[in-house]
């Protein structure tokens, strides 16, 4: 088996281990957020934010090509994060005003950012070629479908710093967030700061999506925020059990996907998403056979 030979030969310095470490940071935070995304029906919002990232990638590439942004992954990540957070807050603000339907607002931001990203990436490639810096602009394929096999230690570090920050934030605000997620209108009446909570979740989603893009690309990043939670909710109706299962399904999907990608020489991002899709299908079948409900006891969520 090529995977084992690779691990034996290169150990911790092998690109597969780096990809796995970077991927684990992504599936850990996406697994936790995924439960809220599925319950609050925010899958399309995730899609909107991840596609908005394309605009951010284009902007970062242009700034880097012009020499206005340092050629470091952290600087570029910061630009993409700011762009995504701006888009997420813009979507929330437009949909809150209720003058435009929510899905239309998301759709507008999604296509607008994609178009902007395409134009800016094209300009960035031309500028970079002109200045002899072609290597600094990512390929279309890497942006759209991810390139986790090229992850280095700085990617791993950024992934885990963002992951820990997102998970700490979600834990810190878990009570108002759960109240808001269950019953938004009543939460406002009980004094829960609903606007703050919604904005916070949007920012956490934007952060998770930007890091997830490294693994699965713009097109497939949303899958990491939807599939683990959807599969876990098929298997249990207890909050912590669902959360643990969601992260576990993410980790399992990542491992299966990376190994399949390495063995078959397929793109890693699509392989991981396909593995998670299969795990979701198996969960749905298992839930149908068992008739739902929780088999595992966990402490109270509150």
């Amino acid at each position: 088996m090529q995977t084992l030979e690779h691990l034996r030969e290169f150990g911790w310095s092998g690109f597969l281990v780096l990809a796995l470490l970077a991927g684990l940071s992504v599936v850990a935070m996406c697994g936790v957020l995924s439960v809220l995304v599925v319950v609050k029906k925010l899958g399309f919002v995730g899609q909107g934010v991840s596609h908005s990232a394309f605009g951010g990638v284009g902007l970062a590439a242009l700034l880097a090509a012009l020499g206005w942004l340092p050629d470091s992954p952290i600087a570029q990540l910061a630009v993409v994060v700011l762009f995504c957070v701006g888009s997420a807050l813009g979507m929330a603000a437009v949909s809150d005003r209720r003058t435009v339907p929510v899905d239309t607002a998301i759709g507008m931001f999604l296509v607008g950012s994609m178009a902007l990203g395409a134009v800016l990436t094209h300009i960035a490639q031309a500028v970079a070629a002109e200045r002899g810096r072609s290597g600094i602009v990512q390929s279309w394929e890497a942006i759209l479908f991810g390139s986790i096999l090229t992850a280095n230690w700085s990617d791993v570090l950024v992934g885990w710093v963002v992951c820990i920050a997102v998970l700490l934030c979600a834990w810190w605000f878990r009570r108002p967030m759960l109240f808001w997620a269950f019953d938004e209108d009543s939460a406002a009446a009980f004094g829960v700061p609903t606007r703050f909570t919604k904005t916070l979740l949007m920012i956490l989603l934007a952060l998770a999506i930007v890091v997830a893009m490294r693994l699965a690309g713009v097109v497939l990043a949303t899958a990491l925020l939807v599939l683990p939670g959807a599969a876990a909710l098929k298997l249990s109706d207890r909050f912590w059990t669902v959360t643990i299962l969601s992260v576990s399904i993410g980790v399992l999907g990542l491992c299966i996907g990376l190994v399949a990608s390495f063995e078959l020489s397929w793109q890693p991002g699509p392989c991981v998403v396909l593995a998670m899709t299969i795990l979701f299908a198996l969960s749905a079948v298992w839930a149908r056979i068992r008739g739902g409900g929780s088999a595992l006891a966990t402490p109270a969520a509150v």
Partner: peptide
């Protein structure tokens, strides 16, 4: 108005009212 697919028990929901 409520999201009934939320994986929380009645006791957890009531506790949220008392302790959010």
């Amino acid at each position: 108005d409520a999201e009934l697919s939320m994986p929380l028990s009645v006791r957890e929901i009531v506790t949220l009212g008392a302790a959010w």
